[in-house]
Design a protein around this nucleic acid. Structure first.
Lengths: 123, 123
DNA sequence: CAGTATCCTCCGAGATACTG
DNA sequence: CAGTATCTCGGAGGATACTG
């Protein structure tokens, strides 16, 4: 873990990282996974917790995650019918990379935002 | 560290993850950072190692990374002039999340690709 | 070789309205 | 409430040609 961190990264081929990045692509994908970490949620609940995501985009994001097998859709034949989304093992496995991203942000957010604001032309 | 992984994630606010995802956004951003892990490279070398990235997009990606302070541009007044890009501390800090993503892929790639291929409508 | 400037295409994301 | 169908818009990414 400590010592020579660089060596630890070495064995991972470039293409290995790419699939992960690809699966995470999309503005809301990571946030949706993150929001599901504590258990299944209904789409409405997801929208509340996330905030700012449109109905359509949430559906699209969930479809992609479902297609890639990171999430399962559960439909309960009640009255009224209920729908829930839940993380699969691959989906739960993505929580660690996301947590690493969170730790990175916690540590460097100020610095990054500062650098970004000073950038010529702004954003 | 072990035991209750879920609790470990808990303290990270949603917005914390988002900046990291935002910085990593862009098809090639992660790959570029990853390619710089062993030291500074010239743009030409970067293109060789990465493969498939266009001249323009590489430049744009590097500009964004520079703006966010993950990379520095070094220009050497030689003849002919030489340019190199190098990771900054925040940039090097991003290697761990990327490595986590690589480990995820190593573990779940087959499963994901399989699920994806079986998906109706393909992609 | 590094960088910029156009031009073009395509997809992601938002808004809105409609169907089960 | 969940999901789909349109429409629009902007930005990302590719190709190409031109400038230091």
């Amino acid at each position: 873990m400590a010592g020579e961190p660089m060596d630890e990264y070495e064995y991972i081929a470039d293409c290995q990282t790419r699939l992960g990045l690809d699966v995470l692509s999309g503005t809301w994908t990571g946030v949706v996974l993150w929001s599901l970490q504590h258990g299944p949620l209904r789409p409405g609940e997801l929208r509340e917790r996330i905030g700012g995501i449109s109905h359509k985009v949430l559906t699209e994001t969930l479809r992609r995650l479902e297609r890639d097998g990171l999430v399962v859709r559960r439909r309960y034949a009640e009255a009224p019918p209920r729908v829930e989304y839940e993380l699969t093992p691959p989906g739960r496995g993505m929580l660690e990379p996301l947590a690493a991203l969170g730790r990175w942000t916690e540590r460097y957010a100020d610095e990054v935002l500062d650098t970004r604001d000073r950038a010529p032309g702004e954003r």
